[in-house]
Simulated scan of single mutants.
Amino acid sequence: MANAGGTEFQDRGLPLTALAVAAGRAVESSRPDPLVVDPFAAELVRAANSHVEMPTQWPANPEDAPPLQQPLLLASIYIGLRTRFIDDFLRDAATVQTVILGAGLDTRAFRLQWPADSRIFEIDSSNVLAFKDSVLAGLSAASGAKRATLDADLSQPWRNSLIAAGFDPGLPTTWILEGLLPYLDAAGQDAVLDEVAALSAPGSRAVIERAVPLPKTDDLDAQLQEFSLKTGLPMSDLLARADPPDPVSILESAGWRCAQHTVQDLCTAYGRVISLAGTTAPATKATADDGGAEPPRSAEGQSRGGFVTAWL
């Protein structure tokens, strides 16, 4: 995801996080038992020519992979679970409109089957969307739906731009918030969720990857200081993300019905363990975009917040 107000290293103007997610989908696609098959992911990573070497193949012996690649391989397991979960949500009772907030290098418009009258709106920064479009055009990829891309910073107002691009607030909409909320501060998350509620007609639905609520303790402050030093991300940004709003509370107060899903729920449903050696490990102990630092964790030690599915 890009253009959410955070500081990120970039290759060709691309957020390293977006490339890491595409690499994770490529790794998942290469497994003998893939949860997701993305035929475009590896080519997106290759075309970016990143200064960070990212694996795009699941190795025969993942435990023997170079130490710097092992965190990315772990992350690919989580990305595979997350991608499949959202794919399955999209396949169930699709709406005419789908909005992908912070679309990054997502390729669902091209790799999933869509009803003939479907419209997909992808929102992100123009450089990310233009890079993706150029690579996919070179692969002769065709979208199965009418697709519109929208350059917008989701930490700023974006409603009018979405409507100007052809979005109809009077029609049921499916909203995808994947890898977005953790990169917005608490106020930004609140604003995005409020807009989703305000722009949704009856029959709308949403799938949301939650941000992790962090306890306000001396221990957390020390973790944040260390994380800030290793990543260069200002402490003020980190603290602003420490107490995110609850998507369930916001949507239920607007009349939505919600269900919550933990990462372990996904592991159980899809028969995966987030581990390279048979021992459960954190979903993202260290990824390329955080410079190898251990992300701050919730009181339960989780570095991922799980998911919310919602219906209006």
Score class of each variant (00 low, 15 high):
A165Y: 06
D106W: 01
V128Q: 13
L81C: 07
W114Y: 09
G104S: 07
A65T: 06
F167G: 00
E122S: 13
A93D: 15
T173I: 03
D168L: 05
P182K: 09
L74C: 12
S126L: 04
E178F: 01
R119K: 14
S140W: 07
S126C: 03
R91K: 15
R84F: 06
F131Q: 07
W158Q: 05
R111Q: 11
A152T: 09
F131W: 11
S140L: 10
L101M: 14
D106L: 05
A130M: 08
Y183M: 11
L73D: 02
A142H: 12
F110D: 00
T107K: 02
W158A: 05
T174R: 13
S143G: 13
L154V: 06
L68R: 15
N127R: 13
A152S: 13
I86Y: 02
G138S: 12
S140N: 15
R111S: 11
P172V: 08
P182I: 09
N127F: 06
G179Q: 08
S143H: 04
N127Y: 08
D168W: 00
G80R: 02
A94Q: 15
T95D: 02
Q189N: 12
T83Y: 05
A137R: 15
P66T: 12
L105G: 04
R91H: 13
D87L: 11
A93Q: 15
D133V: 01
A103Y: 03
T83F: 00
A103G: 09
F131G: 01
T83A: 07
V128D: 00
A165I: 05
A152P: 01
T107I: 10
L180D: 03
I163G: 01
S155E: 07
P182F: 01
R108K: 13
D106I: 01
P169H: 05
R147Y: 11
L171E: 14
L112F: 08
Q156H: 11
S125N: 07
G170Q: 09
T95G: 00
I120S: 05
A164H: 07
T98I: 05
V128H: 03
W114F: 08
Q97N: 12
R111T: 03
G170F: 03
F121L: 08
I163A: 10
T95V: 10
A94I: 06
I100S: 09
A116H: 13
G80S: 04
Q189Y: 04
A94C: 07
L171Y: 04
D92F: 12
L180W: 02
